[in-house]
Simulated assay, not measured.
Amino acid sequence: MERKIKQQVRGYKTQDGAGVNLVRVLGNGTVQEYDPILMLDSFDSTNPDDYTAGFPMHPHRGIETISYVYRGYMTHRDSLGNEDTIGDGEVQWMTAGSGILHEEKLPASERLLGVQLWLNLPAKNKMVPPAYHSIKNSEIEEIELENGKLRLLAGEFQGTKGYLSKYLPLDYYDIHLDPNASIVLNTDSERSVMVFTLLGDAYIGDALIKEKTAVKLTSGDHVKIKATDKNTQVLFISSTLLAEPVVWGGPIVMNTKEELNKAFNELKEGTFLQNKISY
């Protein structure tokens, strides 16, 4: 059965961090439908004043943040002592788990283009040790398609394996299609699948979807993605439905109000970090 559009969400312009202009596509109001993806922020600017303020040091617990910077750069620093820069096609994968502090700096570049996802952690894994991993271009397979290419950011595609998520399975593809080209992706019918049109409009199934739109797909074993008469770049994201309670407060996402209150109390008391910081 072919997957079709179940819901679509176009983002709205907002600011976050120290004054970063971005488009927030998924958030509190889309949690249930897009489970386990909690948030999707899109960045697309040729004006460094839109983003160089960055995201100063802040806490997270209960989630994983996955940043894909297709153009431009992002420098990460955290309370575990990690400091790393990704850019021009690379991925930053941070497991907040029991608690981490991190900052993200966005140096000036010709263009900043990418997205950040928040992937929920299952209740049993909410308090796992925090960790950071970057997926460099040398680790990302580029698979040639007829009239396009697929960049395997994470997961598996037709037997080719990329970075494998530790807590929830995640297939994450960056698909580039030439004008009027198409691709049919086979999908596990039990998976929760969404697509985001990063650059250009695209046909998902038979529906024309505008640029910077997230679409949740119905269940099925395949989906067809087709470019218009212009180049198209879409992100395909497939994972496992959690169907667990979500209690969300700012940078922290837990399963109960008590867990959320405990996290904020620990922040006030200075006991939030359960792993020794290096500075």
Rank of each mutant, 00 (worst) to 15 (best):
residue 211 E to N: 11
residue 173 Y to P: 09
residue 37 I to A: 01
residue 269 E to L: 12
residue 262 K to N: 14
residue 153 L to F: 05
residue 240 T to G: 07
residue 263 A to R: 02
residue 63 I to A: 05
residue 19 G to F: 02
residue 253 V to R: 01
residue 144 E to G: 10
residue 254 M to D: 02
residue 31 V to L: 15
residue 99 G to D: 04
residue 94 M to W: 08
residue 35 D to A: 08
residue 96 A to W: 00
residue 164 L to M: 15
residue 137 N to M: 08
residue 35 D to F: 06
residue 167 Y to N: 01
residue 132 Y to P: 04
residue 49 D to G: 13
residue 26 L to F: 05
residue 33 E to K: 14
residue 259 E to W: 02
residue 41 D to W: 07
residue 130 P to L: 11
residue 208 L to A: 10
residue 68 Y to D: 00
residue 151 R to C: 06
residue 127 M to V: 10
residue 37 I to R: 07
residue 144 E to P: 15
residue 194 M to Y: 08
residue 129 P to E: 15
residue 113 L to G: 01
residue 84 D to A: 14
residue 140 I to C: 08
residue 206 D to C: 09
residue 136 K to R: 11
residue 260 L to I: 10
residue 8 Q to G: 07
residue 238 S to A: 11
residue 55 F to A: 10
residue 58 H to P: 00
residue 93 W to G: 01
residue 110 E to G: 15
residue 104 E to G: 05
residue 61 R to F: 06
residue 94 M to S: 03
residue 226 K to F: 03
residue 187 T to L: 08
residue 263 A to F: 03
residue 156 E to V: 09
residue 222 H to T: 13
residue 242 L to A: 03
residue 132 Y to F: 14
residue 19 G to M: 02
residue 34 Y to R: 08
residue 262 K to Q: 15
residue 9 V to D: 06
residue 131 A to Q: 11
residue 140 I to G: 07
residue 227 A to G: 05
residue 274 Q to V: 13
residue 105 K to M: 15
residue 27 G to R: 02
residue 1 M to Y: 14
residue 234 V to D: 03
residue 46 T to E: 14
residue 225 I to F: 03
residue 266 E to T: 08
residue 50 D to W: 06
residue 269 E to V: 09
residue 54 G to R: 07
residue 101 L to C: 06
residue 192 S to H: 09
residue 67 S to N: 09
residue 238 S to W: 09
residue 52 T to D: 11
residue 202 A to H: 05
residue 253 V to C: 11
residue 192 S to I: 08
residue 86 I to M: 07
residue 256 T to E: 03
residue 271 T to I: 04
residue 208 L to W: 05
residue 38 L to I: 11
residue 72 G to Y: 01
residue 72 G to N: 03
residue 182 S to V: 06
residue 142 E to I: 12
residue 91 V to L: 09
residue 233 Q to V: 10
residue 226 K to E: 14
residue 162 G to M: 01
residue 117 L to A: 01
residue 98 S to M: 12
residue 73 Y to P: 09
residue 126 K to H: 03
residue 220 G to P: 12
residue 164 L to T: 13
residue 68 Y to M: 01
residue 111 R to P: 02
residue 172 Y to E: 01
residue 84 D to R: 15
residue 192 S to D: 10
residue 9 V to S: 05
residue 216 K to I: 09
residue 25 V to M: 06
residue 66 I to S: 00
residue 163 Y to Q: 06
residue 237 I to R: 08
residue 177 L to R: 06
residue 251 P to L: 12
residue 162 G to W: 00
residue 112 L to H: 00
residue 169 P to G: 05
residue 225 I to S: 02
residue 135 I to E: 01
residue 210 K to D: 14
residue 118 W to Y: 09
residue 31 V to E: 13
residue 92 Q to Y: 11
residue 13 K to P: 11
residue 177 L to I: 01
residue 110 E to K: 12
residue 206 D to E: 15
residue 186 N to V: 06
residue 75 T to H: 11
residue 27 G to N: 08
residue 247 V to E: 04
